[in-house]
Amino acid sequence: MEFGPHLMLAALEGAITAAILALTAVGLSLTFGVMRVVNVAHGEFFMLGAVAAWFTSTAIGGHPALGFIAAAILAPLIIGVLAVSADWLILKRLDYDPERTIVATIGLLYIIQQGALIGFGPNAQPVEPPFSHRIALPWFEWTEAGFEMYYPWGLSTNSYKLFIIFAAAMLLLGLWLIMTRTKVGLVMRATQQDRDMATAFGIPVERIYALTFGLGAALAALGAVLIVPVQQAYYLMGHDPLLLSFIVVIIGGLGSLRGTIVAALLIGMSDGIISVFFSPTLAKIIATLLVAMVLVFRPQGLFGKGVH
């Protein structure tokens, strides 16, 4: 394949990475923004989403679409409830102290991961996509004969991959509407602005925290349900989403939703494109060092506003 079509495929893969990353990172950003805690176990909620999708689709059987729909409803619900109980049992009791919360969520990470190893096993398991049609992609070229459109061999994608991008965009739009147009969103943003003030105005801050933690986890789980048909469910799969989400949240400016989404697009696309052309290890090294440098020299993020 020539360079042009190759780049187009890479960009498409990048867009899928970006879409899932946006969902996952927004979940992390939400917990950081509202609760001021860093949830190191966030990647494990993502992994649990994939595992839950595998269990539901295996249990339901029949047409893969049935399992998919069930997973898309059940997985975020179950994992959200799980996260809420973790908040209730652990984080609340730590009074959301930043350092102790990090220690506790590291612990949670290992508990969930090893729990998955016991319950789900060490092997990666595939999940069938609800639908999948091969879509050949056209390529354009100026030749001596003029403008030409043709379908190069190997340049194709499938309908489910396009659906991932669409679904993630819709979910993010929905989240944005919740945050800006509903009372719950308003209350969450108020808590983010000033916890003490929110308490003074009678906002049940503890319940908002639990809700936020659950919502953050549910978003990660949803991202995993979407991606699992093109990847596989695996008990160690939470590691990369966690690191990438960290990167995105930092580059986007800690706690800023808009910045997070822009950064997810940037990181996801460049990760997808760079790893097609360069060694993925080198790409990751550059990305992690970049993040460290952003935090050191521009702690408000690339898109955040400066602190006076």
Partner: peptide
């Protein structure tokens, strides 16, 4: 590593 996880949570708590 489950043990490590449980110990971490217990210590924090």
């Amino acid at each position: 590593m489950m043990v490590a996880g449980v110990v971490l949570v217990a210590l924090a708590l």
